[in-house]
Amino acid sequence: MSGIAWLVEPMSYPFMQRAAVGTLAVGVAAPVAGVWATSRRLVYLTDAMGHAILAGVAAAALLGASLLVGGLTAALVMALLVALLVVRARLPEDSAIGVAGQGLFALGVIGVSVSSQPRALSHVLFGNPLTISSADVAAVIALSVIVVAAVAVCLPVLVATTFDPVHARTLAVRTGLVDTAVIVGLGLVVVVGLTTVGVLMALTLCIAPATAARLLSARVTRVLFLAGSLGASAGLAGLLASYHLGLPAGPVVAVLAVAEVAAAVLARTCLRRRHAN
């Protein structure tokens, strides 16, 4: 099969076109948000939020509320719980995240099992890029526009609060508000990603491309641009590869994104060697 056909043939199916657009949008939004997760040591929190969100989505399904709102609420509850456990109970942060995440996840599992349609709910919870609807595509495009615009507009504040939150407070920046906004933003990416392209793809795209980009550059604008490009290319290449290999799309995209990190480590090591010589 020629290279062009390899690219074009899958795209003759409308569901592949929608999957490609959706994956590209998440592939940009998740890494651009993920750069802040990796810089602020929120990787584990992001991961645990993926579990906690189950509780919110299950509760929303039981109450007949919007799944998006339910998932976001759970992300916020998760962040509040972690803050509470760290500040009041003086738990180490990773213990607090573990306890809060597992607690909410367990509630979510119970919620799913007592709902009248657990079978249907588990399919809603774990999206599949192949069955993404036009409405889903619109949602992920909106998400990606919001994330990119917010990061572009607030870049100086994000940089100041991430690099040195104590100093930022002396500049009368409301760091608590910025921290909350970052966590809500990550929660939004995880919720939307989870219900459209699936939890594995969404979480991996939050973390891996951002990590690779940080290995390749030490300029924040370049890191953001690189992360978005790496995420989008892992998404698209993964989708096409999964089509031709007959494998599920989510794991293939995730593996490619992780391979980007490995390649970045290699590239950096080689560059260092050359500098040393």
């Binding site: 810089s39 991430t162 690099f163 100093h167 030490a218 300029r219 924040v220 370049r222 890191v223």
Partner: peptide, 10 residues
Amino acid sequence: ATPRWDMPIS
């Protein structure tokens, strides 16, 4: 020691 020196900024 306070700032995050591994932040990718100039």
